[in-house]
Amino acid sequence: MEGENLIDKGQAARKLAKTILKATPLVNIYENEEEILLCLELPGVSRKDIKIQIDNGLLTLIGVRSIERKGVSEWDEIKDVEYHRSFSVPPTINTEQVAADLVNGVLTLRLPKSAAAQPKTIEINAK
């Protein structure tokens, strides 16, 4: 009995996974000497529904938006979507120190460059 139940649940989950639309969030990428900034548009996505992973030089972001619908829909252009996007992270990035901020539907990822990758000014010793 319990086994059957599990199979049912699995099928239901697969059905749900099929119905949700996939979307690619728009991104702006900025860089200066200390860091790389990724600014992604994730309107309507809650903090808890965003997963960011960095594995083997690949940063993967998944964000799920599910909008609460109570009444009768008159029109519906903003769909429930799964935002998905990956970026290659250069080896100069210190992946331990990546920070993420979510402000008004825009996620900003700060990817700091490791000290060794930052430009250095060499002092010339006077004799």
Binding site: K70, G71, V72, S73, E74, W75, D76, I78
Partner: peptide, 12 residues
């Protein structure tokens, strides 16, 4: 993009 729903005494 926009959505509109009728929730009885108000629209959302």
């Amino acid at each position: 993009r926009t959505n509109l729903t009728d929730e009885g005494d108000h629209f959302l």
